[in-house]
Design a protein around this nucleic acid. Structure first.
Length: 738
DNA sequence: AGCACGCCGACT
DNA sequence: GTCGGCGTGCTC
């Protein structure tokens, strides 16, 4: 057969979700109308032996293709009639792919909700919405006493005085059905945006600091800027967000609000719904695939004006982009920790720059990077120093426990403090970032310890389940009754976990209501919410928990906060540890106190003179941040330099190191004396889940040098024969160095 | 990442 | 004599 003239024909370059740093060339489908294709449209293509969903990135002349045209296949199907991603969206994703040195096809895929990745049609189901009937308005929720779920849902409708789409209340589907049947709710056509009534009347007046912050962001609404809003818990950050959003809505612009993972989203969602009359969608892990599809399309097609979402919502296209807000910007959940390891905070800023819109970052404890960018005048700092209302700053107290008797980690002065607090009818909150009963079991006879067989870590005692569990690989076994080694020695728990403290507290404070909040007690769906409700309605005297206490929830009746073990955060191989500890202390402290109940924060430590603690307590978070930045500067650490961490693991003990040594050789050959190569070293936990782990850290004073070196070396790294024996990944701007 | 092809041990 | 182990090679 004679070769046809291919010079005039077009081929499509397509991003396919495989870990390969290139696009794939295809012929258009047979009989496809010549000019209908546009970048940003999804297609299905034959790929290897199977079919995959890809995104058209470019349409180009066949003669410009670098691959043998005879090998090209045809696109099987075009899935969209309009591009789902705009040119700007594609630009951002392309930039992110290069910045994070991650395969373009996988980066593009993260911009889509799962349904669209699977090739489902991009059709926005215009759903009806639900509102109160006259009967519903006049029915007391309490009348539905046999049906708490229905009661709650009715109250939501009555309090918000608005209609809801199914997606907004999908978790209450059963209650919704019942209320419809009882004639308390009615299904009606979806409301259209009433531009005269975007916002419901509110009685809140901003204080001067809030006003300044609001004006500052509003004045930059139609151009790029980054504002860092620093304000302690209760200082009214949310009110600033809402007033700025309100202004954006006046211009009919859309707003993307990003939050840390889980927990706080419902509260903020509720406040926004009470405030705004515009369609709002949520995008986070509580939502299923079809709900997320609906939310994504609503923002992409412009029918929703506000999206509230977590990290994965970052890339959602916007029809009328106006503003990005990122709350709790210091939170580590904004950094994706596997695969495409992007920082939602950093990419949000890149996105805003590309779209020429403002970004508003908020935190009580801003990251050192962001504060550094303030000093470099890249970000504008907006401060809310006073607590809104008349709340007072908590008092900090460093409690020196050196040589003090401890009762399962509780010093006598602390026990007394708890007693006093409870006697006043107030709540105490105790924080210990270690779950389980005790971090290790040891044999008093022979010294045997409950080591995990697959990790360089100990198995943790979970007493109530009578099990040993490894928190790193999930390995489990029942609690041994006799020492597996000597068969005679007495087995003892060593160290403290929340479960053990709980037991101690029950003995020390009999008859008091104690709530333990950690991963083990809140696993059950809805359990956390139930406990929070219990705490806020006053049915708790002592609250004990881990990290999850530090995030968001405010407990107004808590007047005593105790951090039981500060010291474990003071000494770490990771230079980020100090920053994280300081943020944690301030965040936990922020849970306490309100109005006339001044909060106390007690830190138990054997390092009462440690400069981190004294600076933080005596001079505040900003002073701590300044001195921490000074240390980073002297040590040449980020943000005064830039890092990339190459991690690798394999079940073979030698392969990871051999691979990294080969990488080092490549780095030598592409000599770049501006980049420091640290390692290879074994990871702080050298073995995890049976895998041997090694890492190599690259550091450079200038980002350009680092990325230039990576651009040169990575294509060769991929081809190394040693690379085939390991799993490896590259982390740009790592925040966890282990 | 999938998913094939391709040469060496325990089983009908 | 086969079924299948996971080494390595490719995907427009």
């Amino acid at each position: 057969m004679a070769k046809c003239d291919t010079s005039a024909k077009l081929i499509w370059q397509i991003a396919i979700p495989v870990p390969l740093e290139r696009l794939f060339d295809y012929w258009p489908p047979e009989h496809y109308p010549l000019n209908s294709i546009q970048p940003g449209m999804r297609v299905t293509v034959p790929f290897g032996k199977s079919h995959k969903v890809g995104v058209v990135m470019r349409v180009m002349k066949a003669s410009d293709s670098s691959v043998d045209l005879n090998r090209l296949k045809h696109v099987a199907q075009v899935l969209d009639t309009e591009p789902l991603l705009s040119t700007k969206d594609l630009q951002l994703l392309h930039w992110a792919s290069r910045y994070y040195h991650h395969a373009i096809g996988e980066v593009i895929a993260t911009a889509f909700p799962v349904a669209l990745r699977q090739g489902k049609p991009a059709v926005l189901q215009r759903e009806n919405c639900y509102g109160l009937t006259k009967l519903g308005r006049n029915t007391e929720p309490a009348q539905l006493k046999r049906a708490p779920k229905q009661q709650a849902l009715l109250a939501v409708f009555q309090n918000s005085q608005q209609t809801f789409e199914l997606a907004d209340i999908a978790e209450h589907k059963a209650a919704l059905k019942s209320l419809l049947e009882k004639g308390l709710l009615i299904e009606q056509p979806r409301q259209t945006v009433d531009t005269d009534r975007l916002e419901k009347p509110v009685g809140l007046v901003a204080n001067p600091e809030q006003l300044h912050a609001i004006d500052s962001v509003i004045s930059s609404l139609h151009r790029f800027s980054v504002s860092l809003l620093q304000g302690v818990t209760g200082s009214g950050k949310t009110e600033v967000y809402m007033q700025v959003i309100s202004e954006a809505l006046q211009y009919n612009l859309q707003v993307l609000v990003l939050l840390p993972e889980i927990t706080l989203t419902p509260q903020l969602e509720q406040r926004f719904r009470q405030r705004f009359n515009v369609p709002m969608v949520c995008f986070h892990s509580k939502f299923n695939d079809s709900q997320r599809l609906h939310a994504w399309l609503s923002l992409q097609q412009g029918s929703a004006s506000i999206m509230l979402g977590t990290r994965s919502a970052l890339f959602t296209p916007m029809q009328r982009p106006g503003l990005i807000i990122l709350d709790e910007e210091h939170d580590s959940s904004f950094k994706q920790q596997e695969g495409f390891r992007f920082s939602a905070r950093d990419v949000a800023i890149a996105r805003a720059k590309m779209l020429n819109i403002p970004v508003l970052l908020g935190s009580a404890t801003p990251s050192l990077e962001s504060l550094f960018n303030v000093t470099r005048q890249r970000y504008q700092l907006l401060e809310l120093s006073s607590r809104a209302g008349n709340a007072i700053e908590p008092v900090f107290q460093i409690l020196d426990i050196r040589n003090k008797p401890l009762q399962d980690g509780l010093s006598e002065p602390l026990i007394t403090e708890i007693q006093t607090t409870l006697a006043r009818g107030q709540q105490a909150l105790l924080f210990l970032n270690r779950r389980g009963y005790a971090p290790v079991q040891i044999c008093h006879g022979c010294g045997w310890v409950s080591r995990c067989g697959r990790c360089d870590a100990n198995m943790v005692i979970h007493a109530s389940e009578r099990r040993l569990r490894c928190h790193h690989c999930g390995a489990e076994q029942s609690l041994p009754k006799q020492c597996p080694a000597c068969k005679t020695g007495e087995l003892q728990p060593l160290g403290l976990g929340t479960e053990r403290i709980e037991q101690t507290l029950t003995v020390l404070f009999p008859g008091k209501n104690l709530i333990r909040l950690d991963r083990d007690t809140t696993q059950r769906k809805g359990a956390l919410e139930a406990y929070l409700e219990q705490i806020n309605s006053g049915h708790a005297d002592i609250i004990l928990g881990t990290q999850m206490l530090a995030k968001g929830h405010h407990f107004p009746d808590v007047t005593l906060v105790a951090i039981l073990d500060v010291d474990s955060g003071l000494f770490s191989v990771d230079f980020h540890a100090g920053e994280k500890l300081a943020q944690m202390i301030v965040q936990v402290a922020g849970r306490a106190g309100r109005a006339n109940n001044r909060g106390r924060v007690v830190l138990q430590t054997r390092q009462p003179q440690h400069p981190l603690l004294t600076t933080l307590i005596d001079k505040g978070y900003r002073a701590f941040a300044e001195s921490a930045l000074q240390e980073r500067k002297l040590a040449g650490l980020p943000p005064y330099s830039h890092q990339a961490l190459l991690r690798t693991h394999a079940s073979d003990a030698q392969a990871p190191q051999a691979f990294l040594q080969a990488v080092c050789q490549l780095l030598q050959q592409n000599k770049n004396d501006k980049t420091l190569v640290l390692g290879p070293v074994s990871a702080p936990m050298a073995r995890r889940a049976g895998q041997f782990r090694f890492q190599l850290l690259l550091q450079s004073a200038h980002r350009k040098d680092l990325h230039h070196l990576l651009d040169l070396v990575l294509p060769q790294v991929v081809k190394l024969k040693e690379a085939k024996k390991v799993r490896w990944s590259l982390d740009i701007d790592p925040v966890d160095l282990y």
